[in-house]
Every structure is written in C-alpha cells, then in structure tokens.
Design a binder for these strands. Structure first.
Lengths: 190, 190
DNA sequence: GTCTATAATAGGATAGAC
DNA sequence: GTCTATCCTATTATAGAC
C-alpha cells in the first residue's frame, strides 16, 4: 500500500526529503534530486508517495510532531512561569537549529501545501501555538510579562523563527544561549 | 537596450512582478503569469529582462531601496534613542505591511537569487542592517536597552519580519501599533 | 515595445518488468 | 520495493515580423 503508510522505509525517505527541502526549499527541489539523495530512481519514489506535495506534507507533519514532542518533554515538571518560558524557547530553538530540518520546513514551506494537506496540519500548528499561548499567559498573569498575549507570542515566535536565517552553528553561541538572550531582552530573568 | 535600464515602463513591470512574487512566491510565479498581469505576451517580457531571475533581482533591489529611503526619512531630525528606535521599527513595518510587496520579497526570496545578483544586493542589505545596528547601539549606550547589540538587532528584525506571516490588514491594529507594542515588549517606552 | 510561433528542456508522473 | 522506459505538460527562452 502506498497511501499515508508509516513504514520505516518511508520515514527514512521523509527524513532525507526534509534535509533537501531545508537546504534548497521545496520548489527548487526536484523529485529527481530527492530520488538521487535517497539512492533510488525517481519512478520508485511514487511507490511511497502519491505525488511530490505529499512528501512535503509528510515532512511538515514530522516537523510539527517533533516540535510538539520536544516541547512537551522540556515542559514536564517545570512549574515556574519564567522557567516554562525558557524551556519552551529552548525546545523551539533546539528543533529549529539542532535537528535543523523538518521543523524549519514546517515553518517556511507552509504556502506550498495543497488545500487538502493544510486541513490536517492546521490542527497541529494550532496545538503548538496554544502551548505558547498558555505559557505566555501564565507569565502575564504572574506579572513576569506585560502586554497583549497573542502579540507577545507572535513577536517571540517571530524572533525565534528568524534565527534560521542567520544562526551559525559553528559560532560560539548555542541555541540555549539564544533562548536566554531573548528571554532577557523581554525582561525575563531567573 | 535591455540590460538593467531604468525606463518608466520597466519600473511598472517590476512593481507588478513584486506583487505576484509577494502573493505566490518567486518559484511558483511563471513568466506567463507575470506577462498576463502586465498585459503583454510572455515573449515580450524578455525585451525588458534577460531572464526570470533578473526580474527577481530588480524587485529585491527596489525593495531594499524603498526600505532604506523610508527609514532615512523617518529618522531625519529624530535624536532621542528611544524615538529613533520607534521610528525605524515603524518605517520597517510600513514598507513590509503597507507597501507590502517589494520589501517582503527582498526578505523572503533571497535564496532564489543567482550568485551574480547577490553581490550587488548584499551591500544594500548590509547598509540597512547597519542603520539598525547604530540605532540599537545608541539605545544600549544610553541605557535604554541592555544586552548584545547584534543579537538585539536580529531578534528585533526577526519579530518584525515575521509579522508578514500573520498580520491582517483588515484587523484593528495598524503597523504603528505593532511597532509600539514591540518596543514596549523590550522595555522601550517614551 | 509587442506580437506570433516555436525551440529546448526540465519537471512531475505512469506502466509494466523484475 | 526498485528499475527502465517513457509520456505529457509546463516552463523558460529565442527569432524574426510588425
């Protein structure tokens, strides 16, 4: 069966596709490039996916799942609002800058998805934003932050998402350093 | 002559291209779509531009020029560090959310440029970032902000650039409102 | 400066053998 | 699950007339 299966093989292929989509963008990546990187011929790709955009959908789904998973892990057992904010920011930068593929694609290639794929993924995106919303809401309620919660969430995520454009993994700063610096910028200090 | 001329006609075409690139992205916009929107046949397009990517280069150059120009205007005569920060943030959001085309393309379609076009444009980008660097440096020097200047610049620009992804022009908030809110979030209040 | 016509190729996708 | 072979269409780009 070909339709949305979850075979181990398919997961490997999705992971390779994530890398290429991250490096060159979805539109500039051809099915032949994908097949090459996967070590198969382009025709064989369509045994695993119905079309090219289904590959993108799988990558983005994977990216959202990891983001949710890592965020959940890092928040577990943390109760202080400031610490929860920091944990979430670190989780976010970790999936963006360390894992470095699927989550980035999930953020930047949204527009290339077909209507159908969108529906499935919007729920996951909302769930992830809801996580941020709650954490920031706690900060505002406890007086750690001041202002409009959705706006703070969007500015924060914007600042974090944009790190993809300039972060140099071979530099001195770790993703955690960046998370700390952003928290400090908006007045969050432990 | 066709090469990088600056005819009025060409400027019109660049402006139309900016709109399409903004709406659908560079790669998904075909030369036929461009020609259609311009009211000419696709063959005629190549009288004005040597190839498709030269159109992108022209759009990005236009975007950077307006950004620099508007920023310069809004900063003129403003001396207080806080006010300069606000003026620059407002200028930035104005070219991103009101003008809404070329500057956005300049930020988001960078990767589709060829090596050659890159060289010309990198200088303009650096100049624009230098403007931000100085304004933020003044804020840090005068004690309005605290922290690493390049990092603050990148977080700030990230938060602002990401507004493109979620801003709703038909909503209640104006671009100026957003600039104020961001300034407030990082502790800048007049 | 724009048109028509068309070249040249790249891209996504399919069919059937192994 | 992969290969070979191939189809079909979309796309960028050119040539020459008006």
């Amino acid at each position: 069966m070909t339709l949305t299966n979850n075979s181990k093989r398919r997961k490997e292929l999705v992971s390779i596709a994530a890398r290429l989509f991250f490096e060159q963008g979805y539109e500039r990546t051809t099915v032949r490039m994908l097949a090459d990187a996967m070590g198969i011929k382009s025709g064989s790709l369509f045994h695993h996916f119905n079309d090219k955009q289904e590959i993108l959908c799988a990558v983005i789904q994977d990216g959202m799942e990891s983001a949710l998973e890592i965020a959940g892990e890092k928040l577990t057992g943390v109760t202080d609002p400031k610490e929860r904010f920091l944990a979430l920011a670190r989780a976010h930068l970790s999936t963006l800058l360390t894992d470095r593929n699927a989550h980035v694609v999930a953020l930047y290639e949204w527009r290339s998805l077909s209507e159908g794929s969108l529906e499935v993924l919007i729920g996951m995106r909302d769930e992830y934003e809801q996580l941020w919303q709650q954490v920031i809401d706690d900060c505002v309620t406890s007086g750690v932050l001041k202002g409009d919660v959705p706006l703070i969430r969007r500015f924060t995520l914007g600042a974090l998402n944009w790190t993809v454009q300039w972060y140099d993994a071979s530099g001195e700063k770790t993703p955690d350093d960046l998370a700390n610096a952003l928290a400090e910028l908006i007045g969050i200090q432990l």
